[in-house]
Design a protein around this nucleic acid. Sequence first.
DNA 1: AATGAAAGCGGACCACGGTCCGTTTCGACC
DNA 2: GGTCGAAACGGACCGTGGTCCGCTTTCATT
Lengths: 196, 196
Amino acid sequence: MTNLLPMADEPAPERSDAARNRQAILAAALELVRTRGVDCVTMDTVASVAGVGKGTLFRRFESREGLMAAVLNESEAAWQADVISGPPPLGPGAPPLERLLAFGHSRLRTNVTHGALIKAATGDSSARSRAAASFAVMHVRHLLSELRVTGDLVLLSIAVLAPLDIVVIEQQQRDNISLERIEAGWDDLVRRVVGC
Amino acid sequence: MTNLLPMADEPAPERSDAARNRQAILAAALELVRTRGVDCVTMDTVASVAGVGKGTLFRRFESREGLMAAVLNESEAAWQADVISGPPPLGPGAPPLERLLAFGHSRLRTNVTHGALIKAATGDSSARSRAAASFAVMHVRHLLSELRVTGDLVLLSIAVLAPLDIVVIEQQQRDNISLERIEAGWDDLVRRVVGC
DNA sequence: AATGAAAGCGGACCACGGTCCGTTTCGACC
DNA sequence: GGTCGAAACGGACCGTGGTCCGCTTTCATT
């Protein structure tokens, strides 16, 4: 008798066919998103291109948003790596304020270029997606603390990040506000929050 | 020969049956949202309760989001009236900083209580919905200007409003951050932006 | 290699948002 | 009241995300 009661946090290894299918699905989704644009990619199409049934997509990725979050993750992980260990001023080495501004600019550009995919991926409150959000909060919080900012740093971080949200940005673009102006406005905000 | 070329901005009066139907649809939608909750209200249901065909819903309200925006508008208009001409500190009469803080608190509460409906209504870039967004920007911009804040006031207004967005708020609530803490954090943000 | 059961699979099926177009209603003009 | 064009109507229809359940595959055990 070994382990009749379920152990908490057992990794639950993945069966070989399941792993194969997940790879196939991700590859198909990635390719389709790249060629057709995220809004023209249906779950049926992904399934047939990947050569699996539709049910398999939903078992592996929960929902369309979940699948898109997984696709997005490919580039997002690279970006996070740049932030953590890339060259300055985004990566470590530059003074904190410079890093913070570089972070915002980089996040802004990323949100604009991957806007459609990000919108297709957000709204799912999966662990992966929430982790992505909290990575940014964690990083900004860290930089604010290095800048000797006092107060509720988590809340301040959220407040500083909120205007970079793709939905907010797109609203401003519809109002014919240029990216440069948005960027300058954000810099101003940061300086005020940091305290001159 | 009168007016063969279409005149710009002619109000285009509404036929009597059209007006009647719009009223019936709005009433049905309002009632259904109140009793069942917005997420359980389908367009088919609204149509059948209102006693009209589904096509009529979409002709009048463009989309589900448009219909929900119309429903939301009922309460939103009352709120805007309070802001413009209600009692202080939300309405005129109080000093600008107090008004600004009261505005944020009020907006925060409203977003929390009407969260589901607001989420169902946003995303449509209809004139009505964009007007609602820009009303808030306009008001905050006005208060900031009274507070002698200098800089790109539109961008600052957007930045100050962004953390009050229902999506941002719900994320924080999932992280077990209390409303009081969110409120205090926002007050802090405002004070920093205004400049102590 | 045989076996058994759990994990995985897949595609028929459903619900809902949104469209289309033949039919009905309105109301301006005679 | 009759006529007629335009506007509005409504419900059949479609595409898409998501579910369900009977069948298949994997793999630990022997």
